[in-house]
Computed example of a mutant assay.
Amino acid sequence: MQDFQQQQLAFIRRIKDPTAPLPAGMRPARMAVYEELFFNNLQNFISSAFPVLLSIVPAQQWQALCRQFFQEQPLHSPYFLHISEAFLHWLPQVAQQLPGFALELAEYEWLELALATDVATVAPGWQFDADSALMLAPLTRLCCYQYPVQQISVSFQPAAPATQPVFVLLYRDDADNVRFLQLDVWSGAMLQLILAAPGQQISTYLAWLQPYVPQWNRDQLLAQVTPLLTDFAMRGIVTAAAEI
């Protein structure tokens, strides 16, 4: 049994690193088939999860990153979403090899994939009511980035962070399409309050938000927030806490 386990470990080491010694009795040509099959599958899973990052990083460098990840990162699940999530968590180790926006872009792309494959049910749209306790629907993700990740492409690669925080809201709509909204700072702050302390009425959130917009009194702030929350309620982004 011990010899068999040693053979398995040698096989795994060679699969992950083609420069490792061949397992005893294994022909190089046969081993190469397994090496290529395992690595190509893993690289395809990663590439499909991060298409924009893939288009920006040179092909040879991308393959080297995938190979390094395969060698260094233990993987405990064959599910493609878990593999890409492990790659996302590993990526900071090689951040110095990538553009400054790469980590934020990778997170944004992975969240799109996670929302698209989540088995949760999309929250129905509803008519906003100021007396309702509020929360963000399960299929939403509120993000704050230094870079405008939703705009990054081969032709737009910012060299420096934006001058203000970039609030991006990702959500899945009632047709099961993942959408994004770029928010201004104060509406992003409002949703951050709802996310951090769900189950409060709008009056409570306005009281917390008021010190950050002293130029508006409570009625003016309510007038600004109500159309926003009405729109978010109709989209199923913000929902009444009792309805979840």
Rank of each mutant, 00 (worst) to 15 (best):
S84Y: 02
T163D: 09
R141H: 05
I83E: 01
Q2L: 14
P21L: 14
D219G: 07
Q224E: 11
L105W: 00
V33G: 07
D17R: 03
L169K: 03
D3E: 09
A207P: 04
L91P: 13
M135D: 04
S132W: 14
F156S: 05
Q182I: 10
V213Q: 10
A233R: 04
P148Y: 06
A159L: 08
S153C: 07
A196V: 06
L9W: 14
F45G: 02
I56C: 01
F45L: 08
V178K: 10
L229I: 10
T239W: 07
Y145F: 15
I83R: 12
Q96P: 04
P158T: 01
G25C: 04
L222V: 02
R141V: 11
L105I: 00
M135P: 02
R13L: 05
D118R: 09
T239V: 15
S132R: 10
G236E: 04
S84P: 09
Q7M: 03
R13I: 00
V166N: 02
G25L: 04
T121E: 15
F11E: 02
L170W: 09
F232H: 13
D174F: 10
L111M: 07
M1F: 11
R67V: 04
L37F: 12
S187I: 10
L75N: 07
F45A: 14
E112Y: 10
R27T: 05
V57P: 00
I83T: 13
I244V: 12
R30K: 07
E72K: 11
A29D: 14
L54G: 01
F50R: 12
A114N: 12
Q96A: 12
T239A: 02
T226W: 04
R30G: 05
Q8H: 06
L9K: 12
T230I: 05
A116H: 11
Q215R: 06
Q224C: 12
A207S: 13
T117P: 02
Y147P: 01
V122Y: 12
R30S: 12
M190T: 14
L103Q: 11
P211W: 08
E104C: 02
Q71M: 14
A160C: 01
F128C: 08
R141I: 01
E35H: 08
Y205C: 06
P165I: 00
Q127P: 02
Q6G: 10
A241K: 07
D17A: 14
L103E: 00
V185I: 14
V57F: 01
I202T: 09
I12Y: 06
Q8K: 06
L103A: 02
N40D: 10
Q157C: 06
F11S: 13
Q97S: 08
W186N: 11
P165Y: 04
F156V: 12
A196M: 06
T121D: 15
Q71G: 11
A20S: 09
Y108F: 15
L228M: 05
N41Y: 03
V185D: 12
F11A: 13
Q96S: 13
T226I: 05
Q68P: 01
Q7Y: 06
P18A: 01
E112S: 07
M26V: 15
S155N: 15
Y171Q: 05
P74C: 07
Q215C: 03
